[in-house]
């Protein structure tokens, strides 16, 4: 107990002892469904170890996408009452696995694309703002500072 909890503290923050208890109970009673969930959540675990930037927020986003893929296999596992055969069949379906791994990429893609969009929008906004300020400065200069320039010249 000590070893995993220390590791959990280092790698998985918030991993408490009752998490292990629940995991053990699930392993004992519905090993099939747990297998489906575990396999399908694998990309998240991989992401966590591969991407150092992956913070809680990003994990949460990816989890939603993975959740979307997991709905059908988990339901199938549920309907089969956790039948091991069916569960294995579910996780060996290539379409499900492809979708599952692609979900991570889709999440990243959507985030990047919308970030680019937002960046473009901000750039346009600040350009417009800059132009308005320059126009105002010029107008004020022309109105008030012309004689000063004339006298200096």
């Amino acid at each position: 107990m000590k070893g995993p909890s220390v590791r959990g503290r280092e790698g998985m923050p918030g991993f408490k002892w009752w998490h292990g208890l629940i995991l053990g109970l699930l392993l004992a009673y519905v090993p099939g469904s747990l297998l489906v969930g575990g396999v399908l959540l694998l990309p998240l675990v991989v992401l966590h170890f591969v991407d150092p930037d992956a913070d809680r927020q990003r994990m949460m986003i990816v989890l939603f996408y993975l959740g979307a893929v997991m709905v059908h296999p988990l339901r199938a596992a549920w309907l089969a009452h956790g039948d091991w055969q069916t569960c294995v069949q579910q996780i060996t379906q290539p379409m499900t696995l492809i979708l599952d791994w692609m979900a991570v990429g889709v999440a990243w893609l959507v985030a990047e694309v919308s970030a680019i969009g937002a960046r473009l929008w901000y750039a346009d906004y600040s350009r417009r703002e800059r132009r308005a300020i320059e126009k105002r400065i010029n107008a004020l200069r022309e109105e008030w500072l012309e004689t000063e320039k004339g006298s200096k010249a």
Partner: peptide
């Protein structure tokens, strides 16, 4: 930074929508 946050937020929304649609 705001653009990145906005991107992630949007991505989160899309994720929620996709999972809802899937359910």
């Amino acid at each position: 930074k705001q653009a990145r946050n906005a991107g992630e937020f949007f991505s989160l929304l899309v994720g929620i929508a996709v999972s809802m649609a899937s359910i």
